[in-house]
């Protein structure tokens, strides 16, 4: 699976996108921007990964897309979390916490 320059695991990117959209509908550009803001510029999502990920998640039925008008009056495609997406996000958050906790513990041991 080609994910150029991405330091993120595929599953993790999906989770981040869901998280970003849980705050409200966004267009693709906005999703990337919001993830960057939320990570305080630590995570930069490449376009080459972002759009495939969006389409993949859309296919899973976790988000839906709709054309709308952007803040600067341009036609743009907006993504919105579905009920199933919200549920998925919860599951992934739990899994992530468990995994991160475990990894953290491992790294703590000397």
């Amino acid at each position: 699976m080609p994910t150029p320059d991405t330091k993120l695991l595929q599953g993790t990117l999906d989770m981040l996108i869901l998280k970003a959209l849980s705050l409200g509908p966004l267009h693709g550009y906005g999703v990337g921007q919001r993830i960057m803001q939320m990570s305080e510029d630590a995570l930069r999502v490449e376009e080459g990964s972002l759009y495939p990920a969006l389409y993949r998640i859309e296919r899973q039925g976790w988000i839906t897309a709709e054309w709308g008008v952007s803040e600067n009056n341009l036609r743009a495609k907006f993504y919105k979390l579905t009920r199933a997406g919200r549920k998925q996000l919860r599951i992934e958050e739990e899994n992530w916490e468990r995994l991160a906790g475990a990894v953290f513990k491992v790294m703590q041991t000397n």
Partner: peptide, 19 residues
């Protein structure tokens, strides 16, 4: 430059979407 190869992204997307 930052977006990278548009065609390639489109290919990838098509694989997922067109499915």
């Amino acid at each position: 430059r930052r977006f990278g190869n548009v065609g390639r992204v489109k290919d990838l997307a098509r694989d997922i979407k067109g499915g």
